[in-house]
């Protein structure tokens, strides 16, 4: 007689754990699925079940001058914000972690404060400040505003890396003959880079999806995509909105994947 294989007893805890995970996953993904259904459904309203599959809303989105202008503007702004917030956030994080500054805790809280403030207030305050200063509402003003709310993300991820950073590694480089500048570029920068870029990805997405801060700071014919979509929705609630959302999601995903490939955000986990 052959040995009877041990049957695993039913594990209720494990089943519940799996169910919980599936539920969370569904919670995150179902809205995206609904958007996709809406984007592909030819009727100008959400109907379930969908009556067919059509790309007409994507065509409308890509053929709409306003949409395209807004899409490119949003991408351009997000790219600028990515670069600026990496430089500013990275430098701030280094100064805060290394600078031996007086009132460091206060400064950290100060730089983080744009996250605590309702973004709509940040936007409104900047709008008034710009008008009072007489600089109007130029694109760079919008970029600065987005950067303001994006920097905390870079700051936080970079500070996290710097917190776990073994400074002996830098000392080892110095004692081996590397000047402070070379220590920074040969050792410090490569080691904090994953943290900086992880924050940069957040910064890009925060800018690309930014609505409340932009609301007051966009000018006629210079609206970002979220603002255009919001206003479009007030008059024409059709699938073009869903198509635009799908395009936004895919673009954001593409940026994350590309940065992941280029920089290796995974390394961040190991560090």
């Amino acid at each position: 007689m052959s040995a009877v294989a041990n049957r695993k007893p039913f594990d209720a805890g494990r089943a519940a754990y799996l169910a919980l995970n599936l539920l969370l996953l569904a919670f995150l993904l179902v809205p995206i699925a609904i958007i996709l259904v809406f984007a592909l459904n030819p009727t100008p309203y959400i109907s379930f079940p969908p009556v067919g599959v059509s790309l007409r809303w994507f065509v409308k989105f890509f053929e709409g001058d306003d949409f395209m202008r807004a899409l490119w503007l949003s991408l351009w702004i997000a790219a600028c914000v990515l670069v600026l917030s990496i430089v500013i956030g990275g430098a701030c994080a280094l100064a805060l972690a290394r600078g031996n500054l007086p009132g460091r805790a206060f400064l950290t809280a100060f730089f983080m404060s744009p996250l605590m403030l309702p973004a709509i207030l940040t936007g409104l305050a900047l709008f008034q400040a710009y008008l009072l200063a007489g600089i109007g509402r130029p694109v760079w003003g919008l970029i600065m505003a987005h950067t303001l709310v994006a920097v905390p993300y870079v700051l936080r991820t970079t500070l996290a890396v710097l917190h776990n950073f073994d400074r002996r590694i830098e000392e080892a480089a110095a004692v081996l003959g590397a000047s402070p500048a070379r220590v920074f570029f040969e050792v410090t920068l490569p080691l904090i880079r994953p943290g900086v870029f992880a924050g940069g990805v957040f910064a890009f997405i925060v800018s690309f999806d930014q609505f409340p801060v932009s609301l007051f700071l966009v000018v006629p014919k210079g609206e970002t995509l979220p603002v255009v979509l919001f206003n479009y929705m007030k008059f024409d609630l059709d699938g073009a909105i869903a198509a635009a959302s799908m395009v936004s999601i895919l673009l954001a995903l593409a940026v994350v994947v590309v940065l992941e490939r280029l920089i290796g955000l995974k390394a961040y986990v190991k560090l």
Binding site: R168, I169, E171, A172, V175
Partner: peptide
């Protein structure tokens, strides 16, 4: 430091 021409070994190794 970087002009002193010394070798140093750390407890934490401090490898790159």
């Amino acid at each position: 430091v970087h002009h002193r021409d010394m070798g140093m070994v750390f407890q934490s190794y401090a490898l790159f």
